[in-house]
Amino acid sequence: MELSIRAATVSDAEAMGRVFVDSFYAGHRGQLPDWLLDTRTYEVSRNGWARTLASPSPGEYVYVAVLDGAIAGVGMVGPAVPWPPDDVARSASLTGECYALYVAPSLQGKGVGGALLRGLAARLAADGVARLVLGVLSVNAPARGFYAAMGGRLLGERDTFDEGVRLDESVYAWDDIRTLLSSAADGSR
Rank of each mutant, 00 (worst) to 15 (best):
D22A: 06
A121M: 09
L137R: 11
N47A: 04
G151H: 10
P79D: 14
V44M: 08
V66A: 11
M16I: 11
W35Y: 15
A92L: 11
V19F: 07
I177V: 09
C98Q: 08
L117N: 02
Y25C: 04
S106I: 04
R178L: 00
G48I: 01
V165A: 07
L137M: 15
F161Y: 15
G113E: 06
V62R: 03
A121P: 06
W49S: 02
P85A: 07
A13G: 05
S23L: 03
D22C: 03
S4A: 12
G109N: 14
G75N: 12
A130P: 00
L94W: 08
A141V: 13
L132V: 09
A148S: 15
S138K: 14
Y102A: 04
D186E: 08
R166K: 08
V139I: 15
A130C: 06
S91D: 06
L117W: 11
G59H: 05
S55D: 09
S183C: 04
V74P: 01
L132W: 10
T179A: 02
Y172R: 05
S93Q: 07
S55G: 02
R166N: 01
G119I: 07
T52A: 10
G78S: 08
A173Q: 12
Y147I: 07
A8K: 05
D87K: 10
L132C: 05
G96Y: 11
R29D: 09
F20E: 04
A184F: 02
A126Y: 12
D186C: 02
K110G: 07
L181Q: 04
V112P: 03
S23W: 05
D162F: 09
D176Q: 04
R166D: 03
D22V: 00
A54Q: 07
V81F: 11
L181F: 05
S183Q: 03
P33S: 13
A54H: 02
K110D: 07
G152Q: 12
Y25V: 10
P82I: 04
G156K: 00
R40C: 05
V44A: 15
T9P: 04
Q31A: 13
E2W: 03
A70I: 05
G119N: 06
S45T: 04
M76I: 00
